[in-house]
Amino acid sequence: MPYTAEISRTNPTSIIFLVDQSTSMSDPIGGEVPQQKADVVADAINRLLTELSVKCAKEEGVRDYFHVAVVGYGATVGSAFAGSLGGRDIVPLSEVADNPARVDERSKKVPDGAGGLVETSVSFPLWMDPVAHGGTPMNRALQYAESLVSGWTERYPASFPPIVINLTDGESTDGDPTAAAEAITSHATADGAALLFNLHVSAAGGTPTAFPDTADGLPDSYARTLFSMSSPLPSHMRSYAASQGQRVSETTRGFVYNADITTVVQFLDIGTRATELR
């Protein structure tokens, strides 16, 4: 059965984030406090990298169950890592964990134990900065990811297949991305074809369409294209999504349209959920 490979240091998997950095990413996204979409996406990925580092931490340190790439696309297409990892593509998680660009102090209100709230500051490691400049060369980004995926499946033929997560807010400006998307999912390890999930971040503030199993009811051809590009969720991710209160079916796809802040975070959590880490 596909998508059941155990993720281990000898059989790690790779997670490749494709981050839309087009000009429109500077538009605000709905929420309690309005934020730019680029900020929300960068925050979500930074948070997820911390999350993965903690999840893979063992006695001796962070284990390389995952190798991570963060690719930005806008004015250019390439590594979106800042700081000492700048310019790198797929980086082992242990190296990611130790090398954020910087650690910010962010203020946060926490319960003071006496029924009130007290403002404290928490350390927040950052690996990528928000960027919003240029077009949406989604085709090039997908082709970039394909070369990473192809190299990975060659190197780790037994591993859980690579997961590509595309976070975008607009239509591709360099042509129909369908063929490039299919090229990604045509690569496979012994455990199955590479996975491509798409997250559409919206400024519209409508109800998000999360993990649909049909293109019916999607508002336009752009949404339908993104839907058709998205891989069905493997069974363990489906179960996890269901345990998170998502409505899922056998043919549910890794796609969210019109995502708000909460859905962005939840989507990344579900889309990077591992089978079993050993």
Partner: peptide
Amino acid sequence: GQEAARQRQEFSQRAV
């Protein structure tokens, strides 16, 4: 594409 994925999966299995 699906056929290619199947073929590549088989190659991976053989490599393993």
